[in-house]
């Protein structure tokens, strides 16, 4: 293997190595917390993009699954004494099953039903969390016992767990992108009827994609609840969990592998900085406004995101979203 080829092959592992070693050098909770939150958003965004980017179906229900994960993690801990670090992956699988059921309802038809169902799903789960008081303690929320770790180390397991979730999300997304399944999802985005006419079971593909895509939000929700040692309907159903990944995927570039990563690592630190700058009484509200404005601007002026814009600029062509091959101009018809 030549040096250049080795570089090509191994460079993705360099940032990962840096992220793994960072906590050795950086001890400030603020930065580690920021990084952990960024990992979380990056994983959720990669998941969202499997449905929103590859298949082109926008879900507005991300936080519904996140909240479901939060409560599931808390309840399994409080009722059955199962640590969240153990239960989280299983909770993710459970959420995928819920996602498949939801997909079965919404995805046999076209996009409008999917938007409506995912949007109301969040309200349904939130309503359940609020009203099933015997189980969830209603709006008072559930307190979870602290991990028994020294104060300065308490963040680390969450840091590495979220990083692992992110790495897993990356490899899942990459495997899908290169597979026949992923090609089918992109076919659905481009010409759904045509894909169906070529034998692709579009409903099955979409349901499967949605089931996979919600896994990450769910696991993240479970971990986050334990990190905060607390869950209530406001925290578990925080609008930012739905909003931020959408903004991140759009800014970075939908339907690409790097786009959601880039978007998360760009938007989340900037968001935190903005919140830091604003007076705390209106910080949350203006943060919403800022993300809303960015979303509108991206939708209007750069709907393909940074990665795709860069690629098509470099290819000089009109190709969009997730091109790997460059496209030379067509030859004249023979």
């Amino acid at each position: 293997m030549t040096g250049a080829a080795a570089l090509q092959r191994w460079w993705p592992w360099v940032p990962l190595l840096v992220l793994v070693l960072l906590p050795v050098g950086i001890r400030e909770t603020f930065y580690l917390d920021l990084l952990m939150t960024t990992f979380m958003y990056a994983a959720i965004t990669l998941g969202w993009d499997i449905m929103g980017g590859y298949a082109g179906y926008v879900s507005l229900g991300t936080v519904g699954f996140y909240g479901l994960g939060s409560y599931a993690g808390a309840l399994l801990l409080l009722r059955f004494n199962i640590p969240v670090f153990v239960s989280a992956p299983f909770i993710g699988v459970l959420c995928s099953l819920v996602g498949a059921g939801l997909g079965w309802i919404a995805l046999r038809t076209r996009a409008a039903a999917f938007v409506i169902v995912t949007l109301t799903f969040t309200s349904i789960v939130q309503l359940l969390a609020l009203n099933l008081k015997g189980l969830t303690n209603g709006s008072s929320g559930l307190y979870m016992p602290l991990l028994t770790l020294p104060n300065n180390l308490i963040l680390l397991p969450f840091y590495y767990y979220m990083l692992a979730l992110l790495v897993f999300a990356y490899f899942v997304s990459r495997a899908i992108r290169g597979s026949k399944f992923g090609l089918g999802l992109i076919a659905i985005r481009e010409e759904e009827e045509k894909a169906e006419g070529l034998g692709v079971d579009t409903s099955l593909y979409k349901i499967l994609a949605f089931a996979i895509s919600v896994f990450f939000a769910c696991v993240a929700g479970a971990l986050r609840a334990q990190y905060l040692n607390y869950v209530d309907p406001d925290i578990a159903f925080d609008l930012f969990i739905t909003l931020s990944p959408i903004v991140m995927a759009l800014v970075g570039g939908r339907g690409t592998l790097i786009g959601p990563l880039l978007g998360a690592f760009l938007v989340q630190p900037l968001s935190q900085y903005l919140v830091f700058l604003l007076p705390s009484s209106v910080a949350g509200q203006l943060h919403l406004v800022a993300l809303g404005v960015v979303l509108l601007l991206v939708v209007l002026f750069m709907p393909d995101g940074i990665v795709n814009a860069y690629r098509s600029a470099r290819a000089g062509g009109s190709g969009w979203r997730g091109r790997r091959q460059t496209a030379p101009p067509a030859e004249a018809a023979p």
Binding site: L60, I246, V293
Partner: peptide, 14 residues
């Protein structure tokens, strides 16, 4: 539909 939904979602957020 993807973009128009995201646009009205953005307006709602703002």
């Amino acid at each position: 539909l993807t973009l128009t939904v995201l646009a009205t979602f953005g307006v709602a957020i703002i």
